[in-house]
Computed example of a mutant assay.
Amino acid sequence: MRKTTAADNENNSRRLAVDTRGLQAMLCCGKDTAIKIGIEAKARVQIGKRVIWNVEKVQRYLDSVSDV
């Protein structure tokens, strides 16, 4: 697996949706944690067998659960 760079994270944050690997890169975490966050954020979108994650919903969720 390719190492995630800061540029990857910035590119993912501008997208409407990302796949699970993109979500992992955006959150800097593993697959299980990324999926857990995505589900908690109600950001999962399934089209046929493909699953993508709504980036805006993930960002709103993280803002709502952050301590700051």
Score class of each variant (00 low, 15 high):
residue 40 E to N: 14
residue 1 M to H: 11
residue 21 R to T: 12
residue 19 D to N: 15
residue 17 A to T: 13
residue 12 N to K: 12
residue 57 K to M: 14
residue 10 E to C: 01
residue 50 R to Y: 07
residue 17 A to I: 06
residue 27 L to P: 08
residue 37 I to D: 09
residue 66 S to R: 03
residue 64 S to T: 04
residue 26 M to E: 04
residue 14 R to K: 12
residue 13 S to T: 08
residue 47 I to V: 13
residue 25 A to H: 07
residue 35 I to F: 09
residue 61 Y to M: 07
residue 19 D to E: 11
residue 34 A to V: 05
residue 68 V to Y: 00
residue 50 R to G: 06
residue 43 A to W: 00
residue 33 T to H: 14
residue 68 V to D: 04
residue 64 S to R: 05
residue 1 M to T: 08
residue 4 T to M: 04
residue 64 S to N: 09
residue 7 A to F: 00
residue 44 R to H: 10
residue 26 M to G: 08
residue 33 T to S: 15
residue 38 G to F: 01
residue 12 N to V: 06
residue 57 K to D: 11
residue 48 G to F: 06
residue 32 D to V: 13
residue 20 T to G: 12
residue 57 K to I: 08
residue 49 K to V: 08
residue 17 A to P: 04
residue 59 Q to W: 04
residue 20 T to W: 09
residue 31 K to V: 08
residue 66 S to A: 03
residue 43 A to G: 12
residue 41 A to T: 07
residue 11 N to G: 01
residue 44 R to C: 09
residue 49 K to H: 12
residue 6 A to P: 05
residue 32 D to F: 12
residue 63 D to V: 03
residue 19 D to F: 07
residue 61 Y to H: 15
residue 56 E to L: 13
residue 14 R to N: 11
residue 6 A to H: 00
residue 8 D to R: 02
residue 23 L to F: 10
residue 25 A to F: 03
residue 4 T to Q: 02
residue 42 K to C: 13
residue 6 A to N: 05
residue 46 Q to E: 14
